[in-house]
């Protein structure tokens, strides 16, 4: 019932946006800007780049809103535009060597993650560009390795290995920070 009401509200909002009503465009922006910005900061590791990409993405959103089809949610559609714009902005990622990464090492570093969201967010920003993009797309945007491989023009195995690498670096980083604080 709530979903149905939300769908009607979103459909009406899109209609008004297509009529170039500034209040509707602002409402749509307010609804999604914050989440998109955080996602873009994590992907780029830089707030200024994230702001530029967010601006460009919303201009694309308003320009192409007529092409939005309800087989995905509006949020997912906007996110896709943001991610594609960011990938164009950052260019094809160059991946660092995986020599030092033990891909079979899935051992748990026991971390109490409570109140760790901010620490993880900032640690992600510090990751090398390529593995940072893969980790964000897989872990936080819910894309499959196949989709990531396609969007970044890399192989599926590279996507998987870079994801494991990013996760390992993150674990170590968070552990170090915790030890230093502790």
């Amino acid at each position: 019932m709530i979903n149905q009401k939300q769908n009607i509200e979103t459909t009406e909002l899109i209609k008004q946006c297509l009529k170039n009503k500034p209040w509707a465009q602002r409402k749509l922006y307010d609804q999604y800007a914050q989440a998109m910005f955080n996602s873009l900061v994590r992907m780029s590791g830089n707030k200024e780049i994230a702001k530029d990409v967010l601006q460009e993405s919303f201009i694309k959103v308003f320009k192409n809103l007529g092409q939005f089809k309800s087989n995905s949610t509006l949020g997912a559609w906007i996110k896709k535009i943001c991610i594609n714009t960011m990938i164009t902005e950052l260019g094809k990622p160059k991946f660092q060597s995986l020599e030092e990464v033990d891909l079979l090492d899935e051992s748990e570093v026991k971390i109490d993650f409570t109140k760790e969201v901010e620490a993880i967010h900032h640690a992600i920003k510090e990751l090398p560009k390529g593995s940072r993009m893969v980790l964000n797309l897989f872990l936080l945007e819910g894309m499959s390795h196949e989709e990531i491989a396609q969007i970044l023009q890399i192989s599926v195995s590279t996507s998987k290995s870079q994801y494991h690498r990013a996760k390992k670096i993150l674990r170590e980083k968070l552990q170090t920070e915790r030890n230093e604080a502790g």
Binding site: P22, Q25, R26, Y29, D30, A33, Q34, A35, F37, N38, S39, V41, R42, K47, A50, K51, L54, Q55, F58, I59, F62, V117, E118, I120, H121, L140
Partner: peptide, 19 residues
């Protein structure tokens, strides 16, 4: 994870709106 970073939403909106 979507609530951590903040930015001047009004300022960015002005730029988007203008463009």
């Amino acid at each position: 994870f979507d609530e951590i970073e903040n930015f001047d939403q009004d300022l960015l909106w002005e730029e988007i709106s203008e463009k």
